[in-house]
Design a protein around this nucleic acid. Structure first.
Length: 533
RNA sequence: GCGCCUGUAGCUCAAUGGAUAGAGCAUCGGAUUUCUAAUCCGGUGGUUGGGGGUUCGAGUCCCUCCAGGCGCGCCA
């Protein structure tokens, strides 16, 4: 907990000297000591002193602490800490002791968060774009829970409305065709082959159920695909249930009592423009049907009523217009809009044979997620999608993905893990008492590369915290690549298993700590940590 | 026309407002009698789309222009 120690020490000193509270961030930069902070800059402004002056004051105050070999003030005002080597080495013991729990924290303060993602219409198989949302959502859940939040995942099944009517008509038509009738295919119907397969199944089983049967089957298949992708939802909520409940009326009544709805042109409107939406929206069409807004508001109210403090929705870019509407709607109902966070996972352009593919589920042109998993694999696909910020647009060349599956950095990280496993196996074979690494003599660590590895390891908890509080899962795989690089470099330069038994045990402890962090990190992004490759 | 997202090395992408903008791929050159060469080391490669501003400090924030993507329905 050396980083925490430095942070606390600086915070405490700042408080004593200037009577103010400051958060302290530590960064690693090889050129400037072990850990650095820029805390003096912000204080300098308030105290009307120069950053160097402030940094010097803090440094002088801490200097007598034996835990630091040296504290330097950079020319511009950075504080650079040089940590006592023995202390750094002890961090390895800490990691081994914590094991699977290393990196966990309680920054989330048990905040109850619901993440809704994928939520694809039950009108066809999941496609490649869904994989991006799935990878992001599932990893966020894992990261948030590791960081002390209470995060739960949910899939909302839109099993009502226009698109389901179309699904029903499409299946019915194919069924009749198969029965030998000549029928016209519905306009805007779903053309995919899976529709014919379902119709065939119905015919074989002699079931004439064109609505609930296809929906159930498609949802079941979507779930199977997600499980293949290491994604499991805590709950599945059906739009039909929300519509049937008393919730819709509650929303209407509540809006009415707050004078948030009115009638115009035979339709019922919500005054969403009062809360920043571009314009008012229709809730009930003049033909009496609901638009999607009413059930969606009811659904979000339902989420809040289950005790969630923050709702996170992961949506595609074509839905960004939805943000203003939904927030305005919630505000009209008296809920603070900032409790709804909508993450737009930017689009995935599929490139095949150098050309962008126009994807339409309705026309039956799309690449199923299952095909991607067959060809690229779960680990590589997850890593590939997570290796980008949520807001970054992404051209996904499926041919290249297949071809470069072997060059995927995920294998680089996994290889580091497998390598360590094989070192341990080798050590055992050589008669090293591997089970005693817990009591290895850490002061035997003596090389800068060894300390460099430790410094990288102790950064992991910060990475998890940062990824959680900023909702940025990509920080984890990037960190893992860095860690693997540091490890491979160390491995190339120094032998772990060698003549000196004590040093062997010490280095085994170091690489085992590395393995622990690699494994914990891979687990956070739902990627496996193989013991051999 | 209005709104959201994006623009960083040849390509794909990083960089809580912090020190000399970093990785991978590609390319060029090296490393293994030893725990996995799916590895390591080094070289080449940049006016961070253009222009202004804010400040101790801007790839990051503000304004403006340019380019690309996506939205702007009583569809979801």
């Amino acid at each position: 907990m050396i980083k925490k120690y430095i942070k606390d020490r600086v915070k405490e000193t700042v408080k004593q000297l200037y009577r103010i509270e400051r958060e302290v961030d530590l960064t690693i930069n090889e050129k400037f000591g072990d850990f650095s902070t820029n805390v003096a800059f912000s204080i300098a402004k308030e105290m009307k002193k120069s950053p160097q002056e402030v940094a010097q004051e803090i440094a002088s105050k801490i200097e007598k602490d034996k835990k630091f070999a040296k504290i330097e003030v950079g020319g511009n005002g950075f504080l650079n800490f040089f940590v006592d080597r023995r202390l750094l080495a002890l961090e390895v013991e800490e990691i081994l002791k914590m094991g699977d729990a290393y990196g966990k924290s309680d920054v989330g303060e048990k905040e109850r968060v619901l993440i809704e993602y994928v939520s694809a219409n039950p009108t066809g198989p999941l496609v490649v774009v869904n994989a991006r949302a799935a990878a992001i959502g599932d990893s966020l859940i894992r990261i948030l829970n590791f960081a002390g939040f209470e995060a739960v995942s949910e899939f909302y099944v839109n099993d009502s409305g226009h698109q389901i009517d179309l699904l029903e008509q499409s299946v019915r038509t194919r069924y009749r065709e198969l029965s030998g009738e000549r029928v016209q295919f519905p306009q805007n119907g779903y053309h995919g082959n899976y529709i014919k397969a379902i119709a065939k199944e119905l015919l074989d089983k002699k079931i004439e159920e064109f609505r609930t049967y296809p929906v159930k089957k498609i949802v079941r298949e979507q779930r199977t695909t997600l499980e293949r992708f290491n994604v499991r939802f805590d709950s599945w909520v059906y739009e039909s249930k929300i519509r049937d409940s008393t919730l819709i009326n509650e929303v209407k009544t509540k809006l009415k009592s707050r004078d948030m709805i009115y009638e115009k042109d035979g339709a019922v409107w919500i005054r969403s423009s009062k809360f920043g939406d571009e314009k008012d929206r229709v809730l009930v069409k003049s033909n009496g049907e609901f638009t999607y807004i009413l059930p969606d508001l009811a659904y979000h109210l339902n989420k809040f009523s289950r005790g969630f403090e923050r709702l996170i929705n992961i949506l595609g870019p074509e839905h960004h217009g939805y943000i203003g509407r939904m927030k305005a709607g919630l505000e009209a109902l008296g809920y603070p809009p900032e409790n709804l966070v909508i993450l737009i996972a930017q689009q995935v352009n599929l490139i095949k044979e150098g050309k962008k593919i126009f994807m339409s589920k309705r026309e039956g042109e799309f690449i199923p997620m299952d095909e991607l998993l067959d060809e690229v694999g779960t680990d590589a696909t997850r890593f590939l999608f997570l290796l980008r910020k949520i807001s970054s647009h992404l051209d996904f060349d499926i041919d290249l993905a297949k071809k470069t599956a072997e060059e995927n950095p995920v294998y680089y990280v996994q290889y580091a893990h497998a390598r360590i496993c094989s070192i341990v196996v080798f050590a055992k074979k050589m008669g090293v008492a591997v089970e005693q690494i817990g009591s290895a003599e850490m002061s035997l660590l003596n090389e800068e590369k060894e300390y460099g590895l430790i410094k990288q390891l102790v950064t992991f908890p910060d990475i998890v915290e940062g990824a959680a509080s900023n909702l940025e899962p990509h920080r984890v795989p990037f960190y893992l690549i860095d860690l693997a690089t540091t490890f491979h470099n160390f491995y190339q330069r120094y032998r772990v298993v060698q003549d000196d038994q004590n040093l062997t045990l010490t280095r085994l402890a170091l690489v085992e700590a590395t393995r622990t962090v690699l494994k914990n990190g891979l687990n956070l992004i739902g990627v496996s940590a193989p013991e051999q490759m």
